[in-house]
Simulated assay, not measured.
Amino acid sequence: MQNLTALSLKTEQGKLQVLDQTLLPHRQQWLNCATVAEMVGMIKKLQLRGAPAIGIGACLLLAVRAEQGVSREQLRQDAEILRAARPTAVNLMNNIDSMLKALSEPDYANAAVACAEALFFEDVALCQQMAGHGAALVQPDEQLLTHCNTGGLATAGVGTALGVINLAHQQGKNIRLWVDETRPLLQGGRLTAWECQQLGIPYQLICDNMAAMLMARGQVDRIFVGADRIAANGDFANKVGTYSLAVLAQYHQVPFYVVAPHTTVDLNCPDGSVIPIEQRDGNEVRGVSGGFGQSIWAPEDAPVFNPAFDVTPASLVTGWVLDTGVYSKADIASGVLKQFA
């Protein structure tokens, strides 16, 4: 396998390494990933996160193991274990399906390596295409807002929503960005803020519950978020808190865009009600933990409801920014997403 490098993934001399995102922004530590159990653990702990990055990371591991001589049957079993690691992120399922096809080839090891490399480079290209389409929507001097982390840490390329924002910044549009902290795991505060500093994007970090006030004051011109799965009718699942932003955006008449590659579209989901929503450990809400340590502020046995994602209905979306273009509500209603069958 050739050496590949992304912000959160890299392969060197036939070995896979993952940047531990739970230690950011204060520590950058690369972890070796050689087994399926290690990959599943990294995904569940969110050491590796972001729908595209999860799918690509899982496939790179399968390719590394194929190159090491692991049997076809074992790799198929590995693939099914990896598929179940993050139920909401459809990119993982789609990428695993591609790898399973490769594993059916007579020379399955070389086919698996070629497939994983192709998926990596495909995502890089898709990110560039999304960035171009989305940045064209941004006007000079606009104040933008985003939620969670959708940059290079979440993909093999420049990112989805943050890729759009970064390109608008590179184009000299004099933008400013409001970054939601993104409770309960603070991906905005820990990760997006870190990426913005690396990229030189002017930003301010806000608590999630401050977005409404900013919109009411006219200090948000446009919102860009990512997606982990888009249903056939345009409903989409994204990090919990996205739905709230969409409701606020409609009330305040702020354009609201979802940015994702076409590989995030799941035509097997007719609408958002059938998208599986991952429930996570209650300790994530009772307190906070990361490279800075751990703090618990709630009673240790406090009952917790902790969905990792929520579903935003298509009726609240201004436009869907995919690698193939920008689509309106009318486009979605006409069934434009069926082209990705």
Rank of each mutant, 00 (worst) to 15 (best):
Q294S: 15
P255N: 09
L214R: 13
L248P: 00
R222G: 07
F236C: 06
L199G: 04
V220Q: 01
G200Q: 10
G290I: 09
N209Y: 00
G226S: 12
F236W: 00
D208H: 07
Y203I: 05
L199T: 00
T263P: 08
G291K: 06
C207W: 06
T264C: 10
Q250G: 03
I277Y: 04
R280H: 12
I201C: 10
D221M: 07
T263G: 08
D271S: 15
V259F: 03
T242Y: 01
V258C: 10
D266M: 10
I201T: 05
M215V: 07
A227H: 04
N209D: 13
V259Q: 03
W297N: 13
G293P: 09
S244M: 03
N233T: 11
Q250A: 01
K239S: 05
G234P: 03
N238L: 05
S273A: 14
Y251R: 09
Q253D: 15
R280V: 11
V258I: 10
G234S: 09
G291D: 08
F224D: 04
I275C: 06
D235P: 05
N283E: 15
Q253M: 06
F236H: 05
A216R: 13
N238P: 05
G272F: 03
A231P: 03
Q219V: 06
I230D: 08
D208T: 04
A246F: 02
A212Y: 01
S295K: 12
M215A: 09
R229A: 14
V258K: 02
F236E: 02
A227G: 11
I201G: 06
N209Q: 14
S295Q: 12
D228K: 11
D271Y: 04
V288E: 12
G200I: 12
C269R: 02
N209A: 11
G293F: 11
D235R: 10
A260S: 13
G200P: 09
Q204R: 15
R286S: 08
D266T: 12
R229S: 13
P270L: 14
